[in-house]
Structure formats: C-alpha cells, structure tokens
C-alpha cells in the first residue's frame, strides 16, 4: 500500500533481514520490501559481486516473492544467493514456481538462468533443520487457509527469532503445540496479525491471524517480545497504533507492530 496513511509502518510487502554479529545475513521472504533492502546491499559487498545470502521463503504467494525480479543483488555476477523453501502446495517444484514467476509473459528477465548472480534453489521439507553460516534454523509447516506455509525458528549469536507469518490456527485459543514449541523462549516472535481482533470473525478461514493469536502463542511459549506482522493492506498507521494499544493492554508480553525500515537489536 502506498500513500500518506501508510508512512510510519510502511506499505511494502513481506521481507525481514537478520544480521549476525559477525555480519552474516539471512533474509526471510522476498516481498517488495526486499527492493528497499537491495538498495542498501548494493552499497556493500553485494555491489561488488562478493555477497553471500541465504533467503528463506515461507511460501510463494505473490506478496512474499514479488520483490524477486527487482532485487538488484541478483543482477551482479559473483553474488551467491541461495533460496530455500518448501515445495509449493498444489504446484510443481519450488524452482518451477519461481521460473514461472519469471516466465517471459510476466517478466522480461525470462527465467532464473538470466540472473547474473549464482542462484541456487533448495527445496526443504518442513521439520528439517538447516545449518546456515551464522544461523541454525528449525522449520515446521503451519496451516494457512487451504494450504500451509513454512515457519522458522532461527538462532544466531545465542539469540532466537521465530517467524510465524501467514498462519491461522484452527482453534485460536489452542494454537498448535508445534507452533508454541517453535517459539519456545524466543527472544523475538514475529507473528501474523493481519486482522484486528474485531475484524476477524468476518475473515475466519482466510489463512491469517488476528492480533490476539500472536499473544496466545507468545504467552504459552515464553517468547520475550512480540512483533505484530503482515499488516492488512487496509490497515492505516492509525489503525495499527490502535491494535498495538489494545493488544498491549491485554498481555504482559511487550508488543509492538513491525515497521518498515526499523532495526531491532535482539
């Protein structure tokens, strides 16, 4: 969403970067937010073709991959970018799906093979554990409407971030034990909060959570901080402020709304 009502929290779609103390990077999802990150990365080793970046995809719905064709580190020879994600539900392979995104009808890039950087696509199976430079990653599958997405628990420098976006639990008051386990004692829980609690009843079954779902998971898992995430395109800055206020009033867990371009020391 673009415009005056979306300036503070931001209007780009999903993308989160993690940086270890030693400078190793990890990106989760490639929404349009990745185009903003790309501008910064081009001023670093990625501009010189010496960048290394693993990217974890939660799933391949457009709002999580639409930054891919415009993520400039892909256009610099020498960069090594590794995309990891599960085989898309109801589709072909992960590589086939991303190839289809860059098919000549949709994109002049005309295929992954025309990206100058070295790009590898690794299909993972949720449940699998992944060792990446500087980060240890656990994965699970979580329900998202008629399909499922991959959630991640990422540990680096002894700190843990759990990413549970695009998730809707069948029973809001009893989130999946696997999700609670994934967020166990996490220093930061990033959770789908697409809907304000009072809007949720109309949108049940669409695959997204109301703000209070993140609270339930945070409280039961002992997560130390909760970031409300994946805001609805209809949620203006003021509406998000109100959701944060109402949510904070109901829990002892510190709650904030993820804002574009904000940095957080975990």
């Amino acid at each position: 969403m673009a415009g005056r009502d979306f300036l503070r929290y931001g209007g780009n779609t999903t993308s989160v970067e993690l940086v270890s103390r030693a400078g190793q990077r990890l990106l989760i999802d490639l929404g349009t937010g990745a185009t903003e990150l790309a501008k910064q990365l081009m001023g670093s080793e990625f501009g010189k073709g010496q960048g290394r970046l693993p990217i974890l995809l939660s799933h391949t719905h457009l709002d999580h991959i639409q930054g891919l064709p415009f993520f400039t580190p892909f256009f610099i020879k020498g960069n090594e970018i590794r995309i990891l994600g599960a085989k898309p539900v109801g589709g072909g392979s992960l590589e086939g799906t991303l190839q289809n995104q860059l098919a000549p009808h949709y994109s002049p890039l005309n295929g992954l093979e025309n990206l100058a950087a070295g790009v590898s696509i690794d299909e993972i199976t949720p449940g699998q554990r992944i060792a990446l430079p500087g980060f240890d990653v656990k994965t699970i599958a979580v329900p998202h409407g008629s399909m499922w997405t991959t959630a991640y628990r990422i540990t680096g420098d002894g700190k843990t971030v759990t990413y549970l976006s695009d998730v809707e639990y069948p029973d809001l008051d009893a989130p999946l034990p696997e999700a609670i386990e994934l967020a166990k004692d996490a220093d930061l829980l990033i959770h789908d909060a697409m809907h304000a609690d009072h809007d949720y009843d109309l949108r049940r079954g669409w695959g997204h959570s109301p703000a209070r779902a993140g609270v339930v998971v945070a409280e039961r898992s002992g997560a130390k901080k909760l970031a409300l995430f994946h805001h609805s395109p209809d949620a203006t800055d003021e509406m998000i402020d109100e959701v944060v206020q109402r949510t904070s009033a109901r829990t002892a867990v510190p709650v904030f709304a993820a804002a574009e371009g904000s940095y957080l020391e975990v």
């Binding site: 673009a2 300036l7 780009n12 349009t32 185009t35 930054g67 415009f70």
Partner: peptide, 16 residues
C-alpha cells in the same frame, strides 16, 4: 512502472 513504491518519497505522485 516495474513495482509498487510506497513511502515518504512517493506520497504526492503515488506509488501504485
């Protein structure tokens, strides 16, 4: 063209 650009730099001409 190309992709949507929200943010403070595009409020007047628009980002869609």
């Amino acid at each position: 063209g190309s992709y949507p650009v929200p943010g403070a730099a595009t409020v007047r001409y628009g980002g869609q």
